[in-house]
């Protein structure tokens, strides 16, 4: 991501990004590790710590002591409950494409090879 995009990030987007990092990790992370994973030079460690504390207060994160600091992980119960509510709501819906704006809807099986080639070319 470019520097300009980062600076314009609002606090809501930062909470989302911290959450993303924690879900992508396989183990609880300390604030320093989260800060490093986001990799934005303009973002301060203290800001990350504040966001983590805020998300924990909202019940979105669990934390355990890791030395002198805390290690944070997503609260999977909350996310599982959300998943159940979403599934329940979605079963009643007729045409999802009419009310949801999805990132990906379907994949043409014939396109699979071309998409893999695109990823392999860069990775």
């Amino acid at each position: 991501m470019t520097g300009e995009g980062r600076v314009q990030r609002e606090s809501g987007a930062l909470e989302a990004e911290v959450m993303t990092v924690l879900w992508q990790a396989n183990a609880p992370m300390a604030a320093g590790q989260v800060h490093e994973a986001i990799g934005d030079a303009e973002l301060s460690y203290k800001t990350v710590l504040t966001v983590l504390a805020r998300l924990h207060a909202k019940g979105q994160l669990e934390r355990e002591r890791a030395g002198r600091a805390h290690a944070y992980a997503p609260c999977q119960d909350a996310a599982a409950a959300a998943a159940e509510k979403m599934t329940a709501a979605l079963t009643g819906i007729g045409d999802r494409t009419a009310v949801l704006q999805r990132f990906v809807d379907a994949l043409d099986p014939d396109a699979e090879a071309a998409l893999r080639a695109l990823l392999d070319a860069r990775d």
């Binding site: 909470e15 989302a16 998300l55 019940g59 909350a78 959300a82």
Partner: peptide, 10 residues
């Protein structure tokens, strides 16, 4: 519960 504008489903 949302982290900013993001709701994560497990």
């Amino acid at each position: 519960p949302a982290a900013g504008d993001l709701i994560v489903l497990d």
